[in-house]
Amino acid sequence: MKYVFLALSLLVSVSTYGVEKKPIAVKVFIAGMFEIGANQGDKAGEFQHWFERYFTNSEPLIVKGALGPVFCNQDGVCGSVLGMGKVASSSSMQAIILNEQLDFTHSYFVISGVGGIPPSKGTIGDVNWGSWLIDYDLGHRWMPAEGKPGEPVFMPRQGYEDIRRYQLNSALVNWAVMLTQNVQLMDSPDAQAYRMRYPQTQARRKPAVTVGSHIAGDTFFHGPGLSAEAQYISQLYGADDYMIAEMEGVAIAQVLSRTVGIDRMLSLRGAVNFDQGNPNESTLAHLDPAPGETAGGFAETVENIVFVGANVVDTIVDKWPDFKNGFKTE
């Protein structure tokens, strides 16, 4: 009897252990970089609207090494706040990817956040799908006064060719753009008034869904000179036009490329500021505006990001048999 009881106890333990340890099969992972306060009920940062749409009934899953918990719903959608900057975001992403509680074998990734935009390319409230993710920092730089007048002051550093830029799956990106290009985006009187400070046609238009290169720098580069340098780097690397300045995308892409690959990775950014001042203000004045002089539209933009991105997330989940084994063009 003693041995029968022991055998039954072991059977129950193994059965319980198996249930508890079975990893969650993640269909879509949504990553925000920062949240302003709580995940709901206050001013929204990059993750709150995602949380309110998908995770209000989800229990937090603690992942050692990640900035915050991971939330997963019953449909296989998971998400987390990774942290701002290349180091914080990529270290969180790696901890999450390697955690045995989660199964990323078939997962899609939506890297979601805000950024700056050149006034010649877009406007506040735009939502942009990244076609290329580029590192702004990996290279050599020098003071303009120490170079030849009018020539670039940046040169790529050898040895970083495989990690300084990533082209995302063009078929998947193009599909996401086509699916979302007609989404009605929110706007505000404050953002509309702020746009009128800029003479560029693109800066003055209504928000739209666009596509282009996202350039990540730990330095918050700003002003017409550094904006032109970012465009130069994008061209130097054979990428699409620079559209969004941000701080994380290329680092997260490196983590994914080393683990599960980037074929199912999407980068989605909303423009909350111009990457330079208008012709009547200095770069420093634009970076440190007087009270009442800041750009409007942040609240609307973080909502716009989810309006756009949720179309992709929901379609992948609803048609999971078509997406599970990879994105295929019809």
Rank of each mutant, 00 (worst) to 15 (best):
L10C: 05
L11Q: 06
N39T: 10
G18I: 01
K21E: 00
N57R: 13
I62Q: 15
F47E: 00
A7F: 11
V63D: 05
V12L: 04
L61C: 06
Q40M: 12
T16M: 13
L10F: 09
V12K: 00
F55N: 03
H49D: 12
I36R: 10
D42P: 07
A7W: 07
A25V: 11
Y54A: 09
G32F: 00
Q48F: 04
I24V: 08
K64F: 10
L10G: 09
I30S: 01
V26T: 02
I24F: 10
T56R: 12
I30E: 00
S58V: 05
A31W: 06
E59L: 10
A44N: 10
T56M: 13
F51Y: 14
F51W: 09
K21V: 02
G18N: 13
S13A: 15
M33A: 07
V12N: 01
E20N: 07
S13K: 14
D42E: 14
S9L: 15
S15P: 02
V63C: 04
P23Q: 01
A31F: 07
K21G: 00
P23A: 04
D42S: 13
V14I: 07
V28C: 01
K43G: 12
T56P: 01
E59A: 15
M33T: 11
I24G: 02
E59P: 01
E35M: 05
E35D: 07
F55Y: 07
A31H: 05
H49Y: 11
T16D: 10
Q48W: 08
I62V: 15
L8R: 01
A44W: 06
V26N: 00
K22M: 06
F29R: 15
K64C: 08
S9Y: 13
I62W: 14
I36S: 11
L6Q: 08
I36Y: 05
V63A: 06
E46F: 02
M33E: 11
W50S: 03
S15F: 14
G41Y: 05
A44I: 06
M33I: 08
F51T: 11
F34L: 13
I24Q: 09
T16C: 11
H49G: 08
L11K: 05
F34Y: 11
T16F: 13
G37M: 02
E59Y: 05
L10P: 00
N57S: 12
T56E: 11
A44V: 06
A25H: 12
L8K: 01
V14T: 05
V28Q: 02
I30P: 03
Y17L: 10
Y54I: 07
V19C: 05
A25T: 12
W50M: 02
T56F: 07
E35Q: 09
S58A: 15
V28P: 04
L11W: 05
A7K: 01
I24N: 06
S9F: 14
P60I: 09
V28M: 00
W50F: 04
G18V: 02
F55H: 04
W50A: 04
Q40T: 14
E35N: 05
V63W: 05
P23E: 01
F34Q: 08
Q40D: 15
V19H: 10
M33V: 07
R53D: 09
G37T: 07
S9Q: 09
Y54M: 06
F51H: 14
N39P: 15
G45V: 02
E20Y: 13
N39R: 13
S15E: 15
W50P: 00
N39W: 12
R53F: 06
N39C: 09
V19Y: 08
Y54T: 08
F51V: 04
S9V: 13
N57T: 12
